[in-house]
Write a protein that binds this DNA or RNA. Structure first.
Length: 329
DNA sequence: AATGTCATCAACCGCGGTGTT
DNA sequence: GAACACCGCGGTTGATGACAT
């Protein structure tokens, strides 16, 4: 009964990923998608378990990832969201485009925690440390006084629902404060959002030009039961920003600083692979520069061999600088 | 220069929720 | 409905580099 076992785990490789493994994984996902992580390693010829492949893809190879430290803006978002959501890293990550739960979690543990403590704020409760000591004592005594039996469970459930609504309201306020209107009915996860087709992004970028006078524009990342509609709604709503604001938004959010090698610079001399990271020193071109629509035309019309399609539906995914730079495809 | 300590982050592990048989 | 596997999440670990002694 039930499903087939995940993987036998015998003879599977562990530890850091090699360039070859990365190539295999990217090539496979580009060609076939990642419908089933369990089957992926065998089909792609990787000696890894599906879980490991999924993690590598989501946290490192996925094309829509940002690199580098979190900006101050993002850091503040993380702090605000953590105050509302606690350690629900995937939820927090879902509100920071291009960031992963792992990345945010690491950043929280290594940077933000210390920062908050230095400021005299308890990173767990987000309250002043001195005040926290007192309230903890009070809470402790309160806890011991309240019996937790079946009668209280229904009340607990109702309390939780009320609390969730309050959290949602507070979160909306936080996001509003940051001038981003995000529908958080359930909160979507980045993982639920399929990768965008470049056509969608590029069309949106150009349409942003056409709507420069649209004063009612705002960013609206809405939840959707249909994964495909969530991505399109995101891009299309962002694109409805006036051109200047669209550029500003991209700057502020540091959305995928897409770059690629020019055809003359594809030699591997320009690329280093160190400690599992690709470094590209070659000349690059910023895809998000909406003032240079010729570059978009270049991509959309396949004038440049730097973008190699394989004929599948995934062939035109947008890749980050590292993936393209390393000539993975 | 050698050694120890700290900081960072990619990757692993285990668990719970959900879907499948 | 039970048994089982898959997936995703959060906590933790371990390798590595940076810095201090």
């Amino acid at each position: 009964m039930g499903r087939q076992p995940c993987c036998d785990k015998v003879g599977l490789k562990k530890g850091p990923w090699t360039v070859e493994e990365d190539k295999k994984l990217i090539n496979f996902i580009l060609t076939n998608g990642h419908c089933c992580w369990r089957a992926l390693p065998k089909l792609s010829g990787l000696l890894r378990c599906g879980k490991s492949c999924r993690l590598r893809w989501i946290n490192y190879l996925r094309p829509d990832l940002k690199r580098g430290l979190l900006s101050e803006y993002e850091e503040q978002m993380v702090i605000d969201l953590h105050a509302q959501l606690g350690n629900r890293w995937s939820k927090i990550a879902s509100h920071l485009p291009g960031r992963t739960d792992n990345e945010i979690k690491n950043h929280w543990n290594t940077h933000i925690k210390k920062k908050l403590r230095k400021m005299g704020i308890d990173p767990l409760t987000h309250k002043p440390l001195s005040e926290q000591e007192g309230s903890e004592q009070a809470q402790g005594s309160k806890k011991s006084l309240v019996p937790h039996d079946d009668k209280n469970r229904k009340q607990d459930h109702e309390d939780q629902q009320t609390k969730d609504k309050q959290e949602q309201h507070q979160l909306e306020q936080v996001l509003d404060k940051n001038k981003i209107s995000i529908s958080i009915d359930d909160g979507f996860c980045i993982d639920e959002v399929p990768l965008l087709n470049p056509q969608e992004i590029f069309m949106d970028a150009s349409s942003a030009h056409h709507h420069k006078n649209d004063d009612n524009a705002n960013i609206n990342i809405s939840n959707s039961t249909s994964p495909s509609s969530s991505s399109s709604s995101t891009s299309s709503c962002i694109s409805s920003l006036p051109g200047d604001e669209f550029s500003k938004f991209l700057d502020e959010m540091e959305i995928i600083d897409l770059k690629w090698l020019s055809s003359n610079d594809s030699s591997e001399d320009n690329i280093n692979y160190k400690d599992g990271k690709y470094n590209n020193n070659a000349d690059t071109m910023n895809l998000w520069d909406i003032n240079d629509l010729s570059s978009l035309d270049l991509i959309m019309n396949d004038h440049d061999d730097s973008f190699v399609g394989n004929g599948s539906g995934c062939s035109r995914m947008v890749f980050d600088q590292d993936s393209w730079a390393f000539d993975l495809l």
